Amino acid sequence: MSELVELQPELTVITDGLRFPEGPIAMHDGSVVLVEMFGPRLIRVLPDGTKETIAEIEGGPNGAAVGPDGMIYLCNNGGCFTPADVMGMTFPGPFDPSTYIGGRIQRVDPASGDVVDLYTECDGRPLRAPNDIVMDGHGGFFFTDHGIRDLAQRTSDLSAIYYAKVDGSHIAEVVFPVEAPNGIGLSPEGGTLYWAETHTGRVFRRSIGEPGVIEPAAPLDTSIVLYGLPGYQLLDSLAVDGEGWVCVATLVNGGITAISPDGSQIEHHSTGDLMTTNICFGGPDLRTAYITLSSTGQLVEMEWPRIGLHVAHM
């Protein structure tokens, strides 16, 4: 059985008033670039909390990453959620087909704010609701397609993990089927891909054979599950720290669940926000964790117990 440690970190609010923040990227100048899913926009938050709009984004921007060309690559869920305000907090509400524009991967020029659709389909199948993204350092990136749950129609997508090139030349489905995949990340050496399924509360892992290629898993190979959370806890986006711990934003039991590389040790860093959606690492010594608290519209920071991880192109 994994050992669980409950922690109550000291959080510092950098800024608030955000419309469901997600996809933070810690920049070298001390700012944090992130999306507001219900903005919808891509913004820069300066160290003093000042907010600057980089680009207005139609649909529903989610995960974000800096590419090898300095451009920002976005997962756009197409506006598959509608904002639901409950007692002053914001939650993802039901799917509304009248406002949905289709899922897509986009490239944003942070200097000009120009937005380009890079991918909208794979092998003739439309992307449904791309959610999170990680660059691999080889000119490409992995991303999750969370899929759509249409309660009115009582349907739910079977979705996939994809690999694509930043130049728009190649996209491929590398894992199928998966159930509402959300966060995605790479181990420090780049040989293991992790992703989190929201509704099952599980973190999966698969080996990477060569850039963009996932090694086949044997039937009934239980090692592909790193950890499954007990009780009613849902999983959102994730980051991997410098010691290989998988740090997953946790919904309902609001906080960051950090899982050791072998799954034997678990930390829960409580934030008090039911919609704790994402984490990234930055600061001069990579010991600062930036966390998005989406129901309350805040970007906060805390000291992380381990050094963070230099992600590709940063």
Rank of each mutant, 00 (worst) to 15 (best):
N131V: 05
L193D: 01
W304Q: 06
G79R: 06
R149P: 00
G60P: 12
P94D: 15
H269V: 03
V311S: 13
E36W: 12
E6N: 12
G140K: 01
I54D: 10
T288E: 00
V35H: 14
A152V: 01
T271K: 06
L118Y: 10
Y163G: 01
C75H: 04
Q8F: 11
R205G: 00
P92E: 01
W245R: 15
L46N: 11
R107W: 06
I266F: 03
N62Y: 08
G231V: 04
I208K: 04
E267R: 13
G103Y: 11
I171M: 08
G49E: 13
I266V: 15
G228N: 02
T292G: 01
L127W: 07
C280W: 01
Y227L: 09
T250A: 12
L186E: 00
A26I: 07
R44S: 14
G308N: 10
P61L: 04
G30K: 09
V246Q: 11
F95S: 06
P181W: 01
G185F: 05
V252P: 02
V300N: 09
T12G: 12
G168N: 04
F81R: 12
D109A: 11
G137Q: 10
G263T: 04
M135E: 14
G297Q: 06
F176G: 01
I101L: 11
I57F: 09
V45S: 13
E3Q: 14
L18W: 07
I171F: 01
I266D: 09
P284S: 11
N76L: 03
T192V: 15
G70S: 06
T99Q: 15
S237P: 08
Q8D: 15
M27V: 03
T82D: 00
Y119H: 14
L235D: 05
P188C: 03
A152Y: 05
L274P: 00
H268D: 05
L286R: 10
M27F: 07
T296F: 01
G183A: 10
Y100N: 07
C247H: 10
Y163M: 02
Y163C: 00
G185T: 08
G283K: 00
T155D: 05
M314L: 15
R154F: 14
D262M: 02
T222F: 02
S237D: 15
F176L: 09
I224W: 04
G88Q: 10
A196M: 03
Y232W: 13
G103W: 10
A64M: 09
D150M: 03
V178Q: 00
W304M: 08
I259P: 09
I214H: 02
G78A: 01
D29Y: 13
G201K: 01
Y232L: 15
G283M: 02
V134C: 14
A258Y: 05
G124M: 10
G124D: 05
W245P: 15
A111C: 07
D145M: 09
G49V: 13
V175M: 04
I184R: 00
V178M: 06
V252H: 12
D236S: 08
S237R: 08
M89F: 07
P83K: 07
